[in-house]
Amino acid sequence: MNKLVEVKNLKQYFKVGKGQVVKAVDDVTFDIYKGETLGLVGESGCGKSTTGRTIIGLYEATGGEVLFNGLSVHRKKSAKEAKELKRKMQMIFQDPYASLNPRMTVADIIAEGIDIHGLAKSKEERMNRVYEMLETVGLNREHANRYPHEFSGGQRQRIGIARALAVEPEFIIADEPISALDVSIQAQVVNLMKKLQREKGLTYLFIAHDLSMVKYISDRIGVMYFGKMVELADAEELYRNPIHPYTKSLLSAIPHPDPETERTRKRIIYDPSQHNYKEGEDVRMREITPGHFVYCSEAEYEKYKAMHS
């Protein structure tokens, strides 16, 4: 499989005054393959959104690099290359109320990228593309001249998706795209994203905290904890055989819509001190079973390996 995005030792530190530094993303390495959906989960403050925003270049990385099709996102490039890169990577945001300009019509919102990248030669072609996009996401052409406040949350999220798709990207970062929506609307948006992926061969980085939805949409899942990626595996594998104690704790905390399992559920509590890493110990991602990576020390690696083979 081809690697579309390579994230190598990515670091994103924020200064918070008095010489203090928050290590929001601390030495994270992973790849995203062409055509797959990589899910990124973790609790608030674990750095999952920062990772997404750094990959797309909204933040200057503190260290490490991000390669898109072999091209560095953060290093200097020609204006043409930079523009092309921005066209190929797009983002869908969490809050469809805050991410659409209330003073622009839907047509202008969707066509903004088309105009910037000169993708339409005439006014007519521009509008035709807008109509096409609206129909692709399940809205209709009459919606083009309306303003965002005239739409419901689910419809706005569709407009956000149409805007991202309008410039024909290859890679979309979806940062909690369904968290602000109602259950019945969530399923509509997720089904739409899956359909578009099939039709257009898109690659997704899907960031969320709702683990059951992430499991459903993702091919592989990465779990983050305090700026580190602690486990990365196939979605199915991660749920069946979680290895890192934090992943186990996270999975045990999700309530299932099933009263019988809820009555018997045992919660596992994660205590970070259980690792007892020594100063200077080599702790990094290691492959336990094929394709299943866990953040661990040499000793833990031996232990996990013995338990899972």
Partner: peptide, 11 residues
């Protein structure tokens, strides 16, 4: 509809 639109972990 509500119950069916949530993916279960076995989905």
């Amino acid at each position: 509809g509500l119950l069916a639109s949530m993916p279960s972990l076995e989905h």
